[in-house]
Design a binder for these strands. Sequence first.
DNA 1: GACGATACGGAACGTTGTTCCGTTTATCAA
DNA 2: TTGATAAACGGAACAACGTTCCGTATCGTC
Lengths: 191, 191
Amino acid sequence: MSPEQARARRADARRNAQSLLDAAAAVFVTSGVDAPVRDIAARAGVGTGTIYRHYPTRADLIIAVYRHQVDACAEAGPRLLATSASPYAALAEWIDLYVDFVATKHGLAAILQSGQPGLETLAAYFLDRLVPVCTELLDAAATAGEIAPDTKAYELMRAVGNLCIGAGTDPQYNARHMVAVLVAGLRLPVV
Amino acid sequence: MSPEQARARRADARRNAQSLLDAAAAVFVTSGVDAPVRDIAARAGVGTGTIYRHYPTRADLIIAVYRHQVDACAEAGPRLLATSASPYAALAEWIDLYVDFVATKHGLAAILQSGQPGLETLAAYFLDRLVPVCTELLDAAATAGEIAPDTKAYELMRAVGNLCIGAGTDPQYNARHMVAVLVAGLRLPVV
DNA sequence: GACGATACGGAACGTTGTTCCGTTTATCAA
DNA sequence: TTGATAAACGGAACAACGTTCCGTATCGTC
């Protein structure tokens, strides 16, 4: 270990980073992922400057909060492919998993697609992590002849994310159902 | 005509309302539907107070700008049903029409689903106008046995609107294609 | 031309994101 | 223990935006 790395971050810095993570997770649940920065800082008992020092962009904070769940989702892909009845079934189950994750995070889906400056990193992280998994599932299903071979994982992931917007806030809109229809549409060549 | 109605709005007021409409339409094209209110006022050559007097909420302004196109879309429904090869074909063509409309208005799709305070009116207007038409098309297709009979027009309209988010800004995402997949999915009972 | 109602403009306020800097604190060496 | 120094902090300050408000200007009428 080089001397520069040897000297770890100060203890209070590490503590604050964790407090912020906990506070953000809690505030995201109650006020949504687009909660005011000040609310998160207040909840963590730190100043607004501190939050930006630890998480320079909002995307960094959101990623830190959800990293574990995104990783879990990514890792579930190959497992489902191995255990499901068919590649298409694996794909459908995996997308269900993703929808369950996104749709329960108030406002996350909207932010993922918003294109607000500073948030591109967030969408990029999700896509970098999940598009390869989705590609693998799509390829398997296409090879098995269950779906058309020309479906792009990137497009599908964005479409599913889009369909999740408003889930939970509008009782008349069932994102899971619409995603199921979309996934069903993959089985047919588009006429 | 009652005396109160007899006295028409002042000429300058009518002129400003029109200027604002034109300015808004122009600004929406270049800067998106979520352009700053001040930009629109400046473009119209009026103060910010004036814009709120004529269009108390942003939704009112957006509705005024797009009312004609929404109406045209609504009226196209029955016509397509009469002229198309099948009810399902009419439905697909009608949704194409809607997607062409929404996807070309920078940011409109996002605002339609955002749930921002004051924007509910906007979504409500679109849905009030289009859900009945969509219902008619869905019913016809269901009666013809082309799609499952349990599809809700409201959900479908919201789903299509959601899929249009990001169209035009992301070259890798083709909203029309994903909508086509969704519509194709209507043909099969979801498994 | 004068009067009253109508409408206007833009300053002002509240809410956010973000930056910046004077102050505090942890760490380490003497 | 204590003092020096880099690290980290807090929150004031700035910018952008939506929205409100009111003193002023203008239109229409008599």
